[in-house]
Design a protein around this nucleic acid. Structure first.
Lengths: 125, 125
DNA sequence: CCGTATCCGATGAGATACTG
DNA sequence: CAGTATCTCATCGGATACGG
């Protein structure tokens, strides 16, 4: 079902999908937190800060599905669930951290550009 | 003027915002295409493939706003508009390409993990 | 403690039609 | 050719409440 010449849009969509995995609101943050080692659900929630229970579970399920984290349930009372990066997840951490640290050190420049743009585009629009 | 320890959320939200800029459906693709040099609107649309006019404009405006691309209008008939990466945009290209190439070379592993997960979670759900 | 279910507003994204 | 304006539908993300 491909068009006649299967150019790189195949790859592009795959790449785009992965970028969206780490590009959603919380995934990158969660992955970097887990970079420090295994954590349980509650710890993670506290570490990330501001994330709702629902979004944390959703995010973790997504990461688990793509093979970036493992989920380990201890059938105790109260229950305890640990999350940990897989090998794949640790490999992902490299590029992600690179992007994160670039972003961190260029926040100011981006904000400046943004303000300049908004200024040009009409403050009283 | 921050406490020593509680400064995570500030940075995190800024970083998260930038990750979402490149993490949306088209930005990363557009940035990588522009990595090859300046292009006009139509070229870009063809190069990306599958993007609607509306989304390309929206994406480019966002990138322009954040200072990653410049927009140059030639007041000819028919009109011609060129887009080009700024210095900031070219710097961004590095980390983004790293992530993109990691994603490209690990698509198979991710798909495998995804299939395995979907399998576990109930194929007939 | 961890997770699910539900509701709801906000945003994302495509299709189409129209202007300079 | 490039961009805007709508309209419409899907998905995201938060709040809240409930269940094992």
């Amino acid at each position: 079902m491909k068009p006649r010449h299967a150019h790189h849009s195949e790859d592009c969509r795959a790449v785009s999908a992965i970028l969206q995995r780490v590009g959603d609101k919380w995934s990158a943050l969660v992955v970097t937190k887990l970079g420090a080692g295994a954590m349980r659900f509650g710890e993670l929630k506290a570490a990330v800060g501001g994330i709702s229970q629902k979004m944390l579970t959703t995010t973790l399920r997504g990461l688990e599905r793509d093979g970036f984290v493992t989920r380990t349930v201890f059938p105790t009372i109260p229950p305890r669930v640990d999350y940990e990066l897989t090998e794949l997840g640790r490999e992902l951490l490299g590029p992600v951290m690179a992007l994160v640290s670039w972003a961190t050190s260029n926040t100011e420049r981006i904000n400046a550009a943004r303000n300049a743009f908004d200024d040009r585009s009409g403050p009283a629009q």
